[in-house]
Design a protein around this nucleic acid. Structure first.
Lengths: 128, 128
DNA sequence: CCGTATCCTTGGTGATACTG
DNA sequence: CAGTATCACCAAGGATACGG
């Protein structure tokens, strides 16, 4: 049965929200070229907190996009790896990341233009 | 200059966050087949509040992905349309929506499996 | 090394009402 | 019809400390 992401109550919209959320694209992207350890991911995703990384990984694991393997060595060693299901989203997410990287300058320009055009009715020295 | 979305301070990460945010994929998707009025968008995106739609559209306009045209008829008429820049993200976002619609069932299954496997150390009648 | 628990702050989001 | 303004709230997310 094909669902419609435009329908409010459709569960697939939650799924869209999930893959389109802040860190998902980066985590999945970093797992593209093989399994990674927790620490590796943490280091690569500059600025992510331990909490958010754990949370993102849990969600992805629960949704079946990645697997989590524990090697009971000392010290502990945990690896995350994309599943077949997870590899299915890899491509669109990569395209999104690439687009962001390639079009940043155009967007920055657009912003400047927009912000300069906005203050049309700006009074010379009013408070707000 | 090519930026890296994995770098904390890279402005292109903000851009990634933007296109990957809750409503963006749906709004842009709905504009794929031509200009739409505010009300049309509102009706199509079931569950979006007026505030969030306005906010999403403003951001997209500011970033140069869509244009906003006002026809001073009575009653007022406003149309939103994708720019060339905006049409550049159309494809990956469509792929994402499609993936969500097609793989929802697999994900639902994975969740069930995960949730049933979790309560391993569940005590018979503990609080919490 | 990997993860959980807790506290605490912020802002995203919806509901509602009002204006051009 | 489109949009702004205000309020109120819950949950996302960071910092920190502790545990396996």
């Amino acid at each position: 049965m094909i669902r419609d992401v435009y329908l409010k109550m459709c569960p697939c919209r939650d799924l869209l929200d999930m893959v389109a959320s802040k860190w998902t694209a980066l985590v999945i992207g970093d797992l593209e070229d093989g399994p990674k350890r927790f620490g590796e991911l943490k280091r690569r995703l500059e600025g992510i907190s331990q909490k958010m990384l754990t949370q993102t990984l849990r969600t992805l694991e629960r949704d079946g996009l990645i697997t989590r393997t524990v090697y009971p060595s000392v010290p502990l060693r945990v690896e995350y790896e994309l599943t077949a299901l997870g590899r299915g989203v890899t491509e669109p997410l990569a395209a999104l990341r690439l687009w962001a990287q390639q079009n940043y300058e155009s967007v920055a320009e657009a912003r400047e233009t927009f912000d300069n055009a906005e203050p049309m009715g700006l009074a010379p020295a009013t408070t707000r």
